[in-house]
Design a protein around this nucleic acid. Structure first.
Lengths: 346, 346
DNA sequence: GTCAGTCGTGTAAACGATTCCACACGACTA
DNA sequence: TAGTCGTGTGGAATCGTTTACACGACTGAC
């Protein structure tokens, strides 16, 4: 593969001049510029990004460590992150932690070794030593969706508090009184916050949230299945199950179906995180939708601000309730017609 | 950030010795090794992968260019690719082409500039000049899922021919005679092959595939919606719509629902690519399942073989039909109980 | 006609690693 | 005792860039 030296030789100039042309530095004669450009064309030369990064100490690359690629929420997030980064002249390297702290650390370490310019993380846990060191250690870093308390890093996230209150109000209005939740890992902020918001909202209606009605999940489908099974085995099962993410909702749906029971007749279901498929499940699932695309874009902007020496902004956006039929109410058909299935949620 | 020089100074040895310890080269005394390791520990030193890559001319990184991150099929593929690559000591950088040839080229170029060791591609089109040059130009490359005919690059893919025949047989058995297909872009192999297989299977049953019944989609939900709408507007609409991928099936579902019609009573639906959500849609969707995970793993193995100088193997695996209720038959309930929603399809 | 300032260019020093080569030092062997 | 060999080590070149610095040629002001 042709190097800058070959181009210099071909154009009859020094490598410095070639480099100047490539980075369009002003002081290059029109003649030299033309010759270099011709040589570049002739040789099909492309600058070696590795060498360039070594010299300039910047890679124009952002790392994004997400908790689970199989989760449509994170997939949407990744997509918007890449889009915004590309618009800003950066590329993105994604690491999938699969909700495993060890894998998360693996990716963070690999990305750091690669000398990425900045890191976007949606932590799977309360923060490994590596993560904490990285945050303190000067690497530009932004938390997105989930964050780690006590660490001085900008956070871009959605606040679901109001939407959860709306959900509880909706459920209460339908006559439900025994409400259960499938929580995410307590070590994640989204895991604990959603339970907290749910508990507070219930309290406003004078409803309790007994321990038996808070199942511990891990944001993956299997755990939703397991927890729902346990709920269904109770002497007095809940009337509603609220899954703290869409994958656990899917698991819950599995568990209910496996018993030959029906949603919402036998048990109601709601989920955090709306996704296109929820429109077409049986029944369509009532969910809390996050402005995922905007979250991703805002996170990239904050990170790039940090990298380029501008003060970064933490951002909190509102989530909102989307009512469908999984909690018992007939769908308000007009609003449910043909929502743009794919992109509309972002 | 500490460099190898700092470590050398701290340990009181030369950088050469540090490097030898790091790459566990045999000829280093136990004493020197211990001192270096201690210095590494003390300084929290991590080798700079950029510098290392420049010198060794390898990045231990694979590029994966997929057609659409929002498509669960590719998401599953990406996951298995990363897993296998990690097991083999490589990392993966994903580029999402969003079914756009220009974006695909953008990612290929970026990855090449980064000097990745090898490229895994699922091409969105018939091959841009860049793609063709890259393939011929000696960069280790493997096509996965889709490929470009006439290019001498190993291909790892699934053959859906038999499964499509099974599907048509299933549909014929249910009494359906007017079958339509939402095709993918003709420039992609999966786009044209699936139509071909469908047409051949129909021929075996003496059924035609009129032009009016072959709609042109682009593997995205919106096109499925549009094509289905057109089908439904025909004087004699088809009895079955077969979508060449899961996203277009989702769009088809949208279109049908928007008219207040029902699947399968008013029109039947089947899809290529099975995904966990199809179990829970209304109705559960009959689909052709690919061994996606195995595809990803085989592709990585082929690519790494190529990179490391071993002869790579093209691989073709079989897809199979999964019957659910969207074509009219009551589900064979036992097999449909609680299939592991998330991982089982890979 | 001299001097200061531009302008375009090239030389060479980095960046942080790996690795070839030479060499010092003991321990053998002859 | 002298020569040979093996072992561990360091010096220095190298990978492909960018960029500080120096330099020669020209311009315009005095």
């Amino acid at each position: 593969m042709a190097s800058i030296k070959d181009v210099a030789a071909e154009a009859g100039v020094s490598v410095a001049t070639v480099s100047r042309v490539l980075n369009d530095h002003p002081s290059v004669s029109a003649d030299a510029r033309a010759r270099v450009l011709a040589a570049v064309e002739a040789l099909g030369y492309r600058p070696n990004a590795v060498a360039r990064s070594l010299r300039t100490d910047q890679t124009r690359t952002l790392g994004l460590v997400i908790s689970d690629v199989m989760n449509p929420y994170f997939t949407t997030l990744a997509r918007s992150v890449e889009e915004e980064a590309r618009a800003l002249g950066y590329s993105v390297v994604i690491g999938n932690a699969d909700e495993r702290p060890d894998l998360q650390d693996h990716h963070v370490r690999t990305l750091l070794d690669r000398r990425i310019d900045g890191l976007l993380v949606s932590p799977t846990d309360g923060g490994s030593p590596l993560m904490l060191d990285t945050a303190r250690g000067g690497t530009p870093m932004v938390f997105v969706d989930r964050w780690i308390p006590g660490v001085d890093v900008p956070v871009v996230r959605a606040d679901g508090r109001a939407a959860v209150r709306d959900l509880v109000s909706h459920l209460y209005g339908l006559g439900h009184r025994r409400l259960a939740i499938i929580a995410g890992p307590a070590a994640t902020t989204t895991g604990s916050e959603r339970v907290e918001a749910f508990r507070e909202a219930l309290a406003e209606y004078g409803l309790p949230l007994p321990d038996a009605y808070t199942g511990q999940g891990d944001f993956q489908a299997e755990s939703g299945r397991r927890v729902t099974d346990a709920f269904l085995d109770l002497a007095e099962p809940p009337e509603v199950v609220f899954a703290a993410d869409n994958l656990m909702a899917l698991g819950a749906l599995d568990a209910v179906r496996a018993r030959g029971m029906r949603v919402p007749q036998d048990i109601a279901l709601a989920a955090f995180d709306d996704i296109p498929w929820f429109v077409h499940t049986d029944p369509p699932v009532t969910a809390i939708a996050q402005p995922t695309g905007e979250l991703g874009r805002a996170a990239v902007r904050a990170l790039v601000d940090m990298i380029e020496g501008r003060p970064p902004q933490s951002v909190t956006l509102a989530a909102h309730l989307v009512v469908r039929r999984s909690c018992g109410q007939p769908a308000p058909t007009p609003s449910e017609q043909p929502p743009a299935t794919n992109r509309s949620l972002s």
